[in-house]
Design a protein around this nucleic acid. Structure first.
Lengths: 341, 341
DNA sequence: TTGAAAGCGCTAACAA
DNA sequence: TTGTTAGCGCTTTCAA
């Protein structure tokens, strides 16, 4: 910056003003300094800037698994909104490791970012508390701490399950199964509850069986599929809600191999609109998790919290409404325009 | 840090030594200072540290599209290796926008990271040159500038095409088609060349037709599939190489809808082992692009360049060998153990 | 409107 | 082995 000042024949403080308060600088000087900046290819040192200014234009985003498309969407949404506000989002991927997640949080803490967005897998209460101690707001994405100890952006996972079950019921399916996971995972428990509610509303006209699986990966789906296939043939089952798209795709694979038609014999749908399950033979009906909105809203809440007095700040929780995405696996090809592929 | 010094009853320089040169500190003092650090929950300010030290323990990774699993793998590989070296990788996603890519590069330049890994979509020569001017090494991943103006890590894309075609030939397919894109995309041109070479080696025993598509997305694959389906029925085609996995999945989808058996009537394979195409009805044979290795090698080259005198540094290009991944879409279920699902 | 100078929190050379 | 101190590149008063 000293070089720029010399080249433009002004003092270093003026260069700083050109960068930070261009309105406080005479037009002629401004132009001269900007010329020098361009000429020298000057890029200001963010470290020094942050150190001197004591504030940051960066936001740290820590996601537990970047290979899940929900988190990619969150990153995208956060990034786009931050760009609009001329802020920056840095992404750290914890690669499904809880110790890495802690390291990522500490890194951003050390970098003195303005705030942190955290999309965790499990509870990270201690880490968040520590970082908050340092005066850095942290927003939780897609995870309900249940403690009202930070702002949160959630999707109404019970509504996810409800929407899924309603959809199957509305297309005339009456013998349903809910496949997936175990209730210690927050989203599983909530989606299950929503499914039950939708079924209960039908006063016995619709039946529901629940098939837990060891985990949420395709192999679990294959086993569940083998268990369910005979029921489909016997007419005891005509609609399946898998708690994740990956599970749904695995089920469809098994049904296909067993000669069962989807959605003819059985409609199958997922619940998290995961692009890792796209491109399959049968496009999957699912429920959109609003990742883009989640990232965007996270940034918004973060900035709101940054703008408030920490002493009086009240944590807010934004709950997003999920949306049904209807594709072939429940209604068949006929009902969908070719354009939607 | 002043607080830590006071709490431990030492000078601030000693705290710095504890952090940076623990061997230069008496064990008793060391323990006392570390105690104070833990007690106060002190996290050192990376900005100040980098400013004072003039070097950085961070690496910036700029990827053009984080929703492509190759780039996710690259990030993972880079991250894991950097962690081993107690360095940090920050990821910026350019979201397929070239101006965002430039902004990302400038951001890392401003943050004075140790070096930059760039996995670009198109040429970014100007930007890289500018950043290099600032003395920051930049390594190109998965893109050959053809100018030997920086270190590069590439996959032998001609070999990708060759491996793909060899595989189909080895399982007895003789009437092949290469589907995909246009040659202005580097990987497409190279893979096509590899396919041609494999076919040429068969001295006319194998035929090859080439079907360009408008882009590399599923819709392009649907159109190509409709063009090819009649040929399969006539027996004029028994093996297809799609230049991307997404294209391959779209082809399989069309063939399925037309009642054509894969791989019975026609074997179909992709070329980039993209997880966005997993979970489909028919697991896809493809060619592994070694993303993890690419990220890892990128970090290695970066550190090597950082360790050398810039004046004498010679750019190196590492070319990774792709690997065939055989799954059902070319050899059927029988040939694969159920475990591989 | 511009210039001068005091720090931001840390590192590293040097002195004790 | 520990303490002292001069910057690192910038922002931001305050004075001119």
């Amino acid at each position: 910056m000293t070089d720029v000042a010399r080249a433009a024949g002004v003092a270093i403080g003026t260069v700083s003003n050109v960068l930070n308060h261009p309105d406080k600088v005479a037009p002629a000087t401004l132009e001269r300094v900007q010329g020098a900046i361009a000429q020298l290819g000057f890029v200001r040192n963010t470290n020094a800037q942050q150190l001197a200014a004591g504030r940051s234009r960066s936001i740290g985003l820590v996601v537990i698994d970047i290979s899940n498309s929900l988190f990619v969407d969150i990153a995208r949404g956060a990034q786009r909104y931050a760009t609009e506000l001329s802020m920056n989002v840095l992404v750290a991927n914890s690669d499904n490791r809880i110790d890495q997640q802690r390291a990522d949080l500490d890194f951003f803490d050390g970098a003195r970012v303005g705030g942190i967005l955290l999309a965790p897998m499990e509870d990270a209460g201690d880490d968040v508390a520590r970082i908050r101690t340092h005066g850095r707001p942290t927003i939780m994405l897609n995870y309900d701490t249940g403690r009202n100890d930070c702002c949160q952006v959630l999707v109404d996972n019970e509504e996810v399950g409800y929407l899924a079950a309603r959809h199957l019921i509305e297309i005339g399916r009456t013998r349903l199964a809910f496949v997936g996971g175990r209730d210690y995972l927050q989203p599983v428990a909530l989606r299950r509850r929503g499914v039950r509610r939708a079924v209960a509303e039908e006063n016995g006209r619709v039946t529901l069986q629940e098939i837990p699986t060891e985990n949420l990966d395709p192999p679990g789906g294959l086993r569940a599929g083998e268990e369910l296939a005979p029921q489909v043939r016997d007419g005891r089952l005509d609609g399946v809600i898998a708690v994740t798209d990956l599970l749904a795709m695995a089920l469809i694979q098994v049904f296909g191999a067993e000669g069962i038609a989807v959605p003819g014999d059985v409609a199958v749908m997922g619940c998290d609109h995961n692009s890792a399950a796209w491109g399959g033979m049968i496009p999957l009906t699912s429920v959109q998790m609003q990742g883009i909105d989640m990232g965007r809203e996270g940034v918004r809440l973060l900035l709101a919290e940054l703008g408030e007095d920490p002493a009086t700040h009240e944590h807010v929780t934004t709950v997003l409404r999920p949306e049904l995405v209807v594709r072939e696996s429940t209604v068949g090809r006929s009902a969908i325009s070719a354009a939607s592929v």
